[in-house]
């Protein structure tokens, strides 16, 4: 299977042709966000304030990286389980968020919102954190620095390895693949 090269962020409909199961390599920059940052972003929206990051066309990676050793751009940085971000995700998709990278089931509400906004959920391999960190070339904290590992970081990446789990039509690899290997 060929690897599809993706540039992040996107300006328009670049992700629409991706299908669940496509193997991709993501280059450019992506934002990190997990539980505490998502909570703050939504509180920010609810209070009518401007978000610290413009998410239009952007990618959010559900991750809380380990600290970087000297000489390393990033510490180990594998995906955290994405369902915990489900309550906050549709509001970010409404803000133009185009892709998420994570692992694990997503709620039906998130999938419906993804279809509406033609967004994509990429999976990264849980626990392959040292391997994934090699594709990160630079890390900057852009918001909520007090949250430490949970702050919003901007990660510059080259050929970040991922697979399309849920595409913009709602096709879901977690639903289509396991039944093929189910035994009586």
């Amino acid at each position: 299977m060929g690897i599809i090269h993706i540039q992040a962020p996107v300006v328009s409909d670049e992700l629409d042709s991706l299908r669940a199961g496509d193997i991709v390599a993501i280059s450019g920059y992506i934002y990190t966000g997990r539980d505490a940052a998502h909570k703050r972003l939504i509180e920010c929206l609810e209070s009518g304030k401007k978000l610290p990051v413009d998410f239009k066309g952007q990618f959010i990676y559900h991750v809380g990286p380990a600290p970087a050793k000297p000489g390393h751009a990033s510490g180990s940085a594998g995906p955290t389980t994405s369902y915990r971000m489900d309550p906050y995700t549709p509001a970010l998709l409404d803000q133009g968020l185009k892709a998420m990278i994570g692992k694990g089931f997503r709620s039906q509400a998130v999938i419906e919102s993804m279809k509406k906004h033609k967004a994509v959920f990429f999976g990264a391999t849980g626990g392959a954190a040292a391997l994934i960190a090699r594709s990160i070339t630079k890390v900057e904290v852009v918001a909520y620095e007090d949250l430490g590992t949970e702050a919003i970081h901007k990660l510059y990446v080259v050929d970040f390895p991922a697979i399309v789990i849920i595409d913009s039509l709602g096709n879901n690899l977690y639903e289509s693949e396991p039944p093929k290997y189910k035994k009586p």
């Binding site: 510490g75 594998g78 040292a130 391997l131 994934i132």
Partner: peptide, 30 residues
């Protein structure tokens, strides 16, 4: 049996090799 499964297991093994060699965390969730 699954090609995707084999590739995921390959990533995990490579990851464990890197972590041991460079003495970095196997997983960011320590």
């Amino acid at each position: 049996e699954s090609p995707i499964g084999r590739s995921i297991l390959g990533q995990i093994i490579e990851n464990d090799d890197i972590a041991a060699r460079e003495r970095v965390a196997i997983c960011q969730d320590t």
